[in-house]
């Protein structure tokens, strides 16, 4: 069993926070990850910043810009991961071009090999639909990395089947159409998406717009095995800069407690 899968098995409701590596400085990230783990994160998603983040809303776009301005690169990202001594699995979220260009020879293999060697457990690539993922999936399988896919409210029928055949670790359920970013409410589309994924044999983590403990509770109560939250943490970093650890930990704890509170009313998975 992969370390990501095991992390979901170890808890009743998983918390998967996202932060952008290198925001606001390359040196700040390690303390942020430790704070999230201390607050109850089960898996941490680390963004490797790309200059054209088409799937991200303004909050994470700004974080990516800060990280790029502060000098984050794929090599520094992997060094950072190598130096992290946390016991939660780490997933790299990045766009395809950075994976494709890494190393001396163009192609996905060098990045995946380096990612596995550095200690990453999986990848999420928001601009890589399942149709374009043959080479990356093969490389991830060869190096023992999970490849997490996003399922959108518009993913149905045959496409949904194709995604579920290929996904590993967990399936990232996009709560609503649009880009990443904190919202005031939990989308109705969440219930519908979870119902469509009832047969999936991987854990379902819902993200896009999750920003407080109540959201996390509602999502888990609707049936999810986990929640993904990014912008709420990125907002804290935007405000507190290199002094964000305490608040990251407190917010992670609030979301984790919310998620766990949703377990009792959660329907049995069929």
């Amino acid at each position: 069993m992969s370390s990501i899968r095991a992390a979901f098995e170890d808890t009743d409701a998983a918390l998967v926070p996202y932060i952008t590596a290198g925001d606001p400085t390359p040196d700040a990230t390690a303390a942020q990850v430790r704070a999230l783990a201390a607050g109850g994160a089960d898996v941490v998603e680390l963004g490797l910043p790309f200059s054209e983040p088409i799937a991200d809303g303004p909050t994470i776009q700004n974080a990516i810009q800060r990280a790029l301005d502060a000098g984050m690169t794929p090599d520094r990202f992997l060094d950072l991961v190598r130096g992290l001594d946390v016991d939660v699995p780490l997933v790299c979220m990045t766009y395809f071009n950075l994976i494709y260009q890494y190393g001396q020879e163009r192609g996905v293999e060098p990045f995946v090999e380096a990612a596995a060697e550095a200690g990453l457990s999986g990848l999420i690539v928001p601009d890589l639909p399942v149709e374009e993922s043959d080479a990356l999936k093969a490389a991830c399988d060869a190096h023992g990395l999970d490849l997490v896919f996003i399922v959108a409210p518009t993913t149905r029928g045959d496409r949904l089947d194709r995604v579920l055949e290929r996904v590993s670790g967990f399936v990232y359920v996009q709560a609503r159409l649009g880009t990443t970013g904190a919202r005031a409410d939990v989308s109705d589309q969440t219930h519908d998406s979870l119902a469509r994924l009832a047969e999936a044999d991987v854990p379902r983590a819902v993200g896009f717009g999750v920003s407080n403990g109540e959201h996390a509770r509602e999502i888990v109560a609707a049936g999810a095995e986990g929640v993904v939250a990014g912008s709420v943490f990125v907002d804290i970093i935007a405000e507190r800069g290199t002094d964000a650890a305490d608040e990251l930990e407190a917010t992670a704890r609030e979301l984790k407690e919310g998620a766990v509170a949703g377990v009792a009313p959660r329907p049995e998975r069929t």
Binding site: I54, P129, T154, R159
Partner: peptide, 14 residues
């Protein structure tokens, strides 16, 4: 060429 887009757009481009 190809179709490197977020999942939410895949049904629309199909």
């Amino acid at each position: 060429g190809g179709q490197y887009v977020p999942e939410a757009l895949m049904p629309a481009i199909s």
